[in-house]
Amino acid sequence: MSKEIIRIDNIHRNFEVGNETVKALWGVSFAINAGEFVTIMGTSGSGKSTLLNLLGCLDTPTCGEYYLDDIATSSMSRDERAGLRNHKIGFIFQNYNLLPKTTSVENVELPLIYNPRIPAAERRQRAIRALESVGLGERLYHKSNQMSGGQQQRVAIARALVNDPVILLADEATGNLDTRTSLEILSLFQDLHREGRTILFVTHNPEMSEFSSRNIMLRDGQVIGDTRNDNMRDARELLAQLPKTE
């Protein structure tokens, strides 16, 4: 039995909009073990963004408890959650969110700057290693605006990996990319999964579930399906089938 990375117990999240209470999440419970590649799927308004914010320690549940790596998080202060985000979580966003006019290496170093445990001398080495692991060893000193979308997303993935987090949280990480690049990024995620990383991929695209090891369906703030997928499709195979562009 592998280690439990995430466990959420009966999570509720309500928002006050004017005089009404909107129930974005309504009693969601599940656990994610180390080494899983989970897609969380749902249409807009299903509560998946709210769930991602909670799992990413950016938000706290109205009631219920969230354990990240066996740490109860719902009663933590802002700063404690910031520390947790730094050490335990790697975020990957749809629009990359790289600093403009900044080199890849400096972008990747960013989380380490906020981690006092890593000495300055080690930062550059770790950033370079992370960039090499996503296949950007050749583009260490390119600025973010000189790179394609796929390359920028790779930099963002390297940034998420650099602090060696227990889980990668991807929010529509392929949403801004064309089919080919999406598949490239997806195969990178699959590579990371094979290396033993735990990945949580939030998406509205139903095709994504074919590439993950587990799929959780959300609708109206509740889990309506949780299925294991034992024969994951390999994104690389699909990539090989695509007509060559050049």
């Binding site: 990413g56 950016l58 802002r78 700063d79 910031a82 520390g83 985000r85 730094n86 050490h87 975020f91 966003f93 969110n97 600093l99 960013l110 989380p111 906020y114 981690n115 940034r159 602090n163």
Partner: peptide
């Protein structure tokens, strides 16, 4: 604002 959000999401504290 976006940069601030990013920095916060990767672990910057309010103080930082």
């Amino acid at each position: 604002t976006r940069e601030i959000g990013l920095r916060m999401s990767i672990g910057a504290k309010g103080k930082d």
